[in-house]
Design a protein around this nucleic acid. Structure first.
Lengths: 191, 191
DNA sequence: CAGGAGCTATACTGGTCTGTCTAGTAGGCC
DNA sequence: GGCCTACTAGACAGACCAGTATAGCTCCTG
């Protein structure tokens, strides 16, 4: 069975909206790339905004699932899984098509914090943070929430700074600071 | 003497482009707000992009000058001046009109990294970092560049995370982590 | 075969955008 | 007065945009 037209549209939306911007990408461009007629789009989605929301939702689910697989990697112990979060960060930042955090970019296009897209992005970041909190708890960290928030600062800071300046040293320092942070938070935990 | 029409346009551009977005703000809206005729705009600037560039340049200069005054505050010693960077961060984030880092937002609207606006933003972030490096050197920090990069990660991470989630705890953790970072980097310096 | 669901192709509406053109005005300076 | 600079006001061109309307196609199912 072939993938549905709806999924095709979302896939191309993820590709184009995230790379070139939502407002900069016209519906017609997207339709040409997807090989889908305009009426088909509007039979599946009420508006362009709804397609954008579906695209953001898809990336949200993908990233959450990726984090989940890292934090449940049976080949690593609890502490190693937390360090692996920074391996994942490095992989994202050093991959050839890196254009910064997709959620930062999309959020900047929707200035109204009440917009559904912004609400979804807020929920995304909170969920990622919460997931790291629970992984730290399981690993026996002394201050799981504080540590998780600081990890997020390093991860998000690295993405934005490498993206804006092109200087990979920010990534290296995020890794190093993350290592220090995790070692300190887990030093009394049962090995 | 009254301020020039050119400066009036830049002032309103800073106001509107940074708050509502460059692409979302039409030239006509800006002109109405500034009380300036369209031909006047195009006699001072070759295009809208050039006005945007001038607006970004202005904020760049303002922020650089603000950092300079913090790092040269005669009422504080070298170490206190570095801690004051986080006071400044708190002031920015908790001020009522906070909408995230203006440079992050503008950068997201210009996806081409070769665009003059993006080049200026890259230069801005590098300059801020360099200025903190030299302040750390003067304060006798053990690893000034590493420490400056980590400070930047905390500052930029806090801005983006508080903006996207609305959770001020990210700011508190950035402050706390910044304090730890500076204490560790300056522990052997001459008091 | 009949009919409906899903899709295509294309034209069109009404709006918004940047940038240009034209004509005219106010004030300073020679 | 004459002139020049800076500015205003408004119309306009040309492009692009989201979303709608119409007509026709294919394929599956009863």
């Amino acid at each position: 069975m072939t993938i549905s037209k709806r999924d095709q549209l979302i896939d191309v939306a993820v590709e184009l909206f995230f790379r070139n911007g939502c407002h900069a990408t016209g519906i017609d461009t997207l339709l040409a790339e997807a090989g889908v007629a305009k009426m088909t789009l509007y039979s599946h989605f009420k508006s362009k905004d709804e397609l954008i929301l579906a695209a953001v939702e898809k990336v949200h689910q993908e990233q959450l699932q990726q984090l989940e697989s890292i934090l449940n990697d049976p080949g690593l112990d609890y502490e190693e899984r937390l360090h692996a979060v920074f391996d994942n960060l490095e992989q994202a930042i050093t991959s050839p098509g890196f254009i910064g955090c997709p959620f930062h970019n999309i959020a900047a296009e929707f200035r109204d914090p009440e917009h559904p897209v912004r609400q979804l992005i807020a929920r995304h970041k909170r969920k990622i943070t919460d997931r790291i909190v629970s992984a730290l708890q399981r690993a026996g960290a002394s201050e799981p929430r504080q540590t998780a928030l600081r990890m997020m600062l390093l991860v998000e800071g690295a993405k934005i700074m490498v993206h804006l300046t092109g200087d990979q040293d920010y990534l290296r320092q995020a890794r190093a600071a993350g290592r220090d942070l995790l070692v300190a938070a887990l030093k009394d935990s049962a090995g």
